[in-house]
Design a protein around this nucleic acid. Sequence first.
DNA 1: ATGAAAGCGCTAACAA
DNA 2: TTGTTAGCGCTTTCAT
Lengths: 380, 380
Amino acid sequence: MARHPVRAAGDRTPTVYDVADRASVSIATVSRVLRTPDAVREATRERVLDAVRDLGYVPSGNARALAGRKTGVIGLCFPGHDALEEEDRPAPELTDGVRVVDDRRRGAAPQSPNLYFDEVLRGAEVEAWRRGFALMVAAGRGPARDVIVNDIAGRVDGLAVLARTVSDDLLVHVARRLPVVLLADAARTGAEPPDGLDHVSVDNAAGMQALVTHVVERLGVRDLVYVAGPADSPDDAERQRGLFAALDAAGLDRAVVEHVRGDFRRDTGDAAVADLLGRRVPRALVCANDQSALGALDALRRRGLRVPDDVYVTGFDGLDVGRFTEPPLTTVAQPMAELGRAAVRAVVDRLADPGAPLLSSRLPVQVLLRESCPPVDTSM
Amino acid sequence: MARHPVRAAGDRTPTVYDVADRASVSIATVSRVLRTPDAVREATRERVLDAVRDLGYVPSGNARALAGRKTGVIGLCFPGHDALEEEDRPAPELTDGVRVVDDRRRGAAPQSPNLYFDEVLRGAEVEAWRRGFALMVAAGRGPARDVIVNDIAGRVDGLAVLARTVSDDLLVHVARRLPVVLLADAARTGAEPPDGLDHVSVDNAAGMQALVTHVVERLGVRDLVYVAGPADSPDDAERQRGLFAALDAAGLDRAVVEHVRGDFRRDTGDAAVADLLGRRVPRALVCANDQSALGALDALRRRGLRVPDDVYVTGFDGLDVGRFTEPPLTTVAQPMAELGRAAVRAVVDRLADPGAPLLSSRLPVQVLLRESCPPVDTSM
DNA sequence: ATGAAAGCGCTAACAA
DNA sequence: TTGTTAGCGCTTTCAT
């Protein structure tokens, strides 16, 4: 068994010139063999391919991109993965020991990593592959964010950026060089979104409106509490708009709805709700996202309240876990993977036709009625 | 509001030369301002920066990488996302309609996308960011796989590849050009893993052994069924090794264990188990992964069998959903994100010291005992 | 502190 | 069918 890396430390990585030499052809022919094989006589091609094999030649993507004026890469930037960025854990243990731990339920469930971005990323990856592009990702954290985005912008053909990842200024700056599409940029409070960019987002407001309409009109609930997200979240703002729209349409006073300010995380959903429940128990708890709803479910269970019999609970996002909770969680499913795909599609389209009119698409959402807030009132 | 993209269709993207012209300096100075700002007089620097701003200049990463002989990018290759690759769904609807659907539990749960890779990717991304690298991903599908990997290999400084993504030949080929680390390459059946590469994997065998030891020794189970994975899965092979090791150590005949061949997917776990249960009901169902275990849970519930009272069920992977099932799923948690981080770390280390001895590390796993197969027998 | 000039490894005319 | 030759946009000595 080898005791050292495949590549000897002193090896210079071979270039077209090396291959050309070894195959006794010009570098142009080497290039042709790789890019347009049919334009080369069979025998020559074989010789070149052999040389490639013998030398372990891998063409430099950078040189190729430079000469060809395109990279074949699309960049995807989104905010950092919160769960992992905070804890600065120790180096992993490399022991062979297997710990066996009692992990039965105790207290509130810890925050799980944000699955939202994972799915967007997955969708983007799939679409990029289909279109023959590679994908470069940067989940920005901290001040280095702008630097890295700028950096990435210089190595791709187009960029998809999730809202609020980087400053608008930077966005506009790089958009002068390459196509940029903005993802999930919900209605902003105050500032206008950067102009001149393609947008792809999800219809938060309509989804929440449909859900709440179901709750108040179909289930006849008059007493509900909204467990909000962070005050500065555009997503939350949009969802609240939908909430109010539904109330208005049903002729309900907005004041009937109490707001509990959460932060989209599971433990807060839990804490905020636990606090609220000490005072009063509404008929329905409409949560701004699934994580909070999961927290609420936990809090309710610990207080011995039954869902949906005593309280209806709804979430928003459509996380997979929602199908496995007890009871399964009613929610509004966002087409997250679809969002990623649509983003890549938008970039590629813009690349193909730089002059096309600006795109601003909203992907439809879906209300999934499950046991935590069922299609009809089954509590009687 | 703008009705056209920021970048006018005819704009040539500005280069160092344009910036240099506008700032009345040489291109060398422009480069210095960007790379080593302190080596430039303040006034000059300002002028250059202004020009950068005015022109919307973003340096070409490719040119930079070419001249600098390094890209600052690490590549990550893994097998395609199965869930999405199969269905070739229609273009998304762009209507504003919100569908409201009854999504209450009916029958087996559909397959959810493979969360395994998502987490590895997340870990890799975090570590890459920390080390100042960008990450380029390719989830290969189909025959184009090798092509794209080769392609990516040409545009990164190092590569992390999940086992079985591409042919060994290709792996060895590209490893001659840059550092390659192989991920989760479990013991193979037959062929030797490519030599001369760094390896990072997870201790499948030890994990399964610890889990089964618990089942047979602590819980005293003698009648168990193993719901296996695909016959060609090295992961499954390792887990089976662990299973047998535990049986041997407990003095149990391997023949007491019936194998049900599954394929790691939720619906098969369900189908295979449903079939089995028609014939006999063992005391414990040891599943090769969590997805199958989830399917098993479903099948058991539909037959009115109680977990853990009638049957113990265990999984393997440590997916987050396992904490929310009824009952919560006992499993072996793989440090998936850690795997991604370790991979990037290995690549970066190899880059730093090409001559270092080969790395072959196994990350420890953790047995999580939850209600589906608890620490002690509580059924009496 | 700044400039001139030589590449980095490849593609794409244009010639032959 | 194959070779010659300009760049692609940047970094980096080496001078000045």
